[in-house]
Design a protein around this nucleic acid. Sequence first.
RNA 1: GCCGACGUGGCUCAAUUGGCAGAGCAAUUGAUUUGUAAUCAAUAGGUUGCAGGUUCAAGUCCUGUCGUCGGCACCA
Length: 631
Amino acid sequence: MEIIYNNDKLILNEGETGFSLIKRLDLKNKLDILVYKLNGELYDLATPIKSEGEFSFVTKTDPEAFTILNHDSAHLLAQAVLSLYPDAKFGIGPAIKEGFYYDIDFGSVVINDDDLVKIERKMSELSKEDHRISMKLVSQQEALEIFKNNEYKVELINEITDRITVYTQGNFTDLCYGPHMPSTRYVKFFKLLSLAGAYWRGDAKRKQLTRIYGISFFSKEELDAHLHNLEEAKKRDHRKLGKELGLFMLSEYGPGFPFWLEKGMSLYHELEHWWISKQRRDGYEFIKTPTLLSRDLWEISGHWANYRDNMYTTKIDEKDYAVKPMNCPGSILIYNNSLHSYKDLPIRLAEHGNVHRHEASGALNGLFRVRNFTQDDAHIFCRRDQLQSEIKRLLKLYDEVYKTFNLSYHIELSTRPENKYIGDLKTWNESEKALAKACVAFGIPFKVNEGDGAFYGPKLDFKLRDSIGRIWQCGTIQLDMNLPERFDISYIDRNNKKVRPIMLHRAVFGSIERFIGILIEHYAGAFPLWFAPEQISVLPVNNEAHLKYAAKLNKKLINLGLRSSLNGANEKLGYRLRQSQIAKIPYTIVIGDREMNENLVTYRKFGKEDQITVPYKDFIAMIRREIKNKA
RNA sequence: GCCGACGUGGCUCAAUUGGCAGAGCAAUUGAUUUGUAAUCAAUAGGUUGCAGGUUCAAGUCCUGUCGUCGGCACCA
């Protein structure tokens, strides 16, 4: 039998394993080899190479290495837990993008953060003890016997239809497909990060297990760098910055209902004004629909039946009302307010609509998940033949918006769910094709999530990537085959017949509140000039000599439409400069004798340490240019 | 909603085994008039989230409750 290895044919010995091959080839980097890969599948080094094909060794630097290491780390965690808590029962323990976790039933024992430290120490011990990790193929009967005291594994075993393998290291044996590295000593640089409750098999009706999260790397440097990044992420937490920069607040009197402070409201207004002007340019008509609408409407839309628990309702004059959790029904009422000709389409109704949803208390999170937020919503009513071009327009608009904030993104297309869906197949196929085709035409790649669409239609989701690499789902374009039927909307075609238009829902930010939260973290509170709540701070060097002039200059800047403020506190210049740095104000200008007498401006830009002196009009020109370029 | 942790001046945090609630920053007042990240001094600021309980005595222990955080579930 022969394999292709390093582009060469290699004849295998009888019963050759990864280990024996490493030995035979006398590979220098043998300690870096984790597993081997045969025809794209990964195997333990101890497993005999069973067929011909493309062969390679996977080393610490290969893309698969991180997952393998973290999967091994989950096993090491379990081994450590078992030795400290012999009665613990194990659920599942996979590697994930951000490391690994293991779901464990500790019985009546309560685990806290101090225990994590103990477990971590035990893991290090077990790692040093260099336990061999060995795999064994077993029958279902044997597997059931091995895990007879663990109802979780038994449940899993009963569902497995192909081969069952178990992995053993020391006295810990786990049900696992593998692959694993040869021994526990490969897991060396790791950290247990947090403790959480997690429902068995993700089902809220089933038992909650204790989940331990951790992450593992091949070097101390990588681990330290990762921990450092976590610290950095904490520093830009929008809740922390929101407090420090005076942007918004939360109150126990309204959990999940954010209060906007003056500076935060400035962000909000800037963002909204800019965004409204872009949408007007693109042919959107702005509307506003009521916050409180009668139950009858929500029954037609289907929300009363499906989301009543998450809606705020009230009784007025013996009639039920609900605070709107969505803007669509209101928008449709406006569409239905008049007859529409095929010539009028597409009609693009936009509403920055303030909605309330009673989210579960445990779901609330700063501005990211709130009970009162504003959707930058729009509903597009168009003809079938306009669908393609409408989507293309949207892609262009989304691209422009996200690029303005320096956010890169990727698109995911979710298609028709297998069983539960409404509408006819023809429309589904046509719409999915239109969404895909528009992406291709726009020249942007997309990922397909088969069967992940809403029951009422396919959608495109936009996943943004921020300045430190985190992914946020914001924008969405959804085709709706449900509401047009329920509200019986139509337009009159050229044959004078009533025809059902296509309805698109679209939001680019998703929620303005959440988007601002994301931008706070993305910019770490140091907003670009056009967007910053305070753009310029004017500091007179000496209050007696320069305050008057500085105040005049500040007034001048304000009259030019700039958000400028004077800092004439009785403090040293250094102290006031520090204040503007802490407030992350883009430009701090210092006014002294020279500036006053020669009409100059000495400025320091946030994030830079040098001071630059220029004529006043050059400074204004520069500021204007920067604002215009949204830099 | 569920599991776990936490809740002390505006902010960040102290307070031995239960034993007089304290500091820095911010604020106010006064002095100082400052050229690129903290001038000096004084003053004021608290029913320790809230409601009960145990105790001679509770920030500390117990019960309940509200809120926040890390996750899970949920996210039209």
